[in-house]
Write a protein that binds this DNA or RNA. Sequence first.
DNA 1: CGTATGACGTGCA
DNA 2: GTGCACGCCATAC
Length: 88
Amino acid sequence: MTEFQHKIHDIVIKIPKGSVVTYKEVAQLAGRPKAYRAVGNILNKNYNPVIPCHRVIRSNGEIGGYNKGSDLKRKKLLTEGIICGKII
DNA sequence: CGTATGACGTGCA
DNA sequence: GTGCACGCCATAC
């Protein structure tokens, strides 16, 4: 567990229900605005259910990816009230 | 330590 | 709007 990972987890956990954040936003909040790649990498390896990684989407509005499948991510977002027919 | 990879982003044709 | 290339950071090998 590195400090960066801890920060990312903490930030993602603090994402309110019904809201979404972009990878760049998370990286910026973590103090590394240009580490959005690392953010995705960490979330990809992170299988911790306490982390709502499904609330992290791409800056262009795309769903992005998900550990358990992008389809489940889209479904979760729909359940939380995020408007996403398919992609944007 | 150097290379390769990845849930990305931006710029340019 | 689409496609390609470059950059940037952390992790794995």
